[in-house]
Design a binder for these strands. Sequence first.
RNA 1: GCCCCUGUAGCUCAGCGGAUAGAGCGCUACCCUCCGGAGGUAGAAGCACAGGUUCGAGUCCUGUCAGGGGCACCA
Length: 571
Amino acid sequence: MKLIPHELGSLVEQSIQAAQAAGDLPAFEIPAIVVETPRRPEQGDYATAVALQLAKPARMNPFHIATQIANHIPQSEIVGAVEVAHPGYINFRLNEDWLRQQVEAILAEGDNLFQLSLGTGKRAQVEFVSANPSGPITIGRSRGGVIGDTMARILEAAGYDVEREYYFNNAGRQMRNLGNSLRIRYLEALGRPVEIPGEDDDTFYRGDYLIEFAQDLVREQGDALAEADWQPFKEYAEKRMFEWIRSSLSRIRIHHDVFFNENSLYDNGAVWDVLKALDERGYIYRAAVPENASPEEREDAGGKGEAVWFRSTLLGDQKDRVLVKSSGEPTYTLPDIAYHVNKLERGFDLLVNVLGADHGAQYKVVQYAVSALGYDASKINVIINQMVRTVRDGKEVRMSTRRGIYDTLDDLIDQTSPDVVRYMLLNRSPNSHLDFDLDLAVKQSNENPVYYIQNAHVRCAGILREAQARGVSDEGADLSLLGDAELTFIRKALQLGTEIEQAAISLEPHRIAFYALELARVFHPIYDNVRALHGEVPLETGKARLRFYRAAKVVFRRVLDLMGMSAPETM
RNA sequence: GCCCCUGUAGCUCAGCGGAUAGAGCGCUACCCUCCGGAGGUAGAAGCACAGGUUCGAGUCCUGUCAGGGGCACCA
């Protein structure tokens, strides 16, 4: 379907050219024409302030420019009226007959409503969640999960071929700690003398789930592992943890296409290739302290061996970064660089990386490195989402996987529903801090917008069911019988395409959540007043209204699907 | 100390350099009991502060104040 702002923008552009050709407007370069929806109804359905922008280059009064543009607007089936308002706005009113016909257009598109061509033929990758399998998935991580998956859905709607990726690390110290922790729990479960580390030991994972894993392990293997080191325990814990994470994510309809193991970057030597490439370009040096270290840092460095440094300050970083520790072990940064090189080499047209605020600094180092290697760092787009604070009884609940205090996604879903979780975590700009009030989320009251939106779909489904039961068909309905109230909804529904486009371009999935609520706000009063099967409503009018509700149902279903939410037939 | 994010209605938050700043919840008053499990109408109430850029600033820039996060040879 057409995106109205584009159609109108194109008409304005043609109009300016025509006016220039006719000598009614002087020569100037035509800027990008922004057409938006004004707040107030008397300002039209769509408007542009382009004449105000042109006042300076055209050296003319903006009202006069607007008048000339309005005079030269070509004929179009979508335009009902063009008006000029002071100081120089051009306001458009849509053709109401055309609007009514859009009910059929919406029905024809169905589940693919506003499938755009923005990304047609292009491949996009969205990387999100990417939690290491050291603990259950928390609410904080889930935010990135919901943002990432919704972003992926929006990009798909925009026409991209989208791949969802999960990057993880199952090596390193934390996983060794996890294995060791399970080993201790295993020995405990066997009744062997073992000391449970105290609260101050942060190498020990305290979560109860390890006790459960240990019991399962005893059931499966008996005491066969009593003399084993941490390794088999790590492998077992990892396997169980991944199953858990994936099943939790699956409950809120999040699925990844690719699970990318950091280890593969060691196996194929990519990590060392990257290091070598950086070295060849003069970005690498060996030292105990960074080259630009202060005298204090030099003194503090006593005893440290030589590490391998990335001269990132050459690219604007605040300090150089260690890529390989003096122990010979790479830091997290080096494989992360190799990973992004790998992504870029895979030929995606668009890369989106959903990160928590605590990783916000990290991606900059990666960008410095990939641009040092000659790649286009701007291809890596990052959505940084701020922290989620979970609040219960008015107090913050601290989350720490290692200390065993956490709010898991599972807990939250159990207390609410997948749809509530998805909406609550989406309905906020990512760079806004989110207080997740567990008490409120648990409440199933009308404080919760999720039900309000879904109920719009339910109402449409309900009336169509009722119509079927009564044997009333809306086939071939005369849409000219639709009134102003229905037109209001159709206008709003037709904005969905622009919302998808904007959300895809600016990488702002939360826009859909806000739009959904606005759409429901427009819908409910109409449903209240516009009866389809009421005794006083003439049959033909009723049929047209049923047709309208059938289209409304399609719109709500599409919007809910974009957010990964269910579109229930009944409440 | 430095870097990033945020300060908009009582609360939780939208707001793309453009017209009289919007929702939800809560509050106040009223309507509906139906095609409906969570319905509707109306009302009070706000851009942290100070400069600047612009024809035009909640939006861009600088500073101040306040909150959160980050500044590891952790991931």
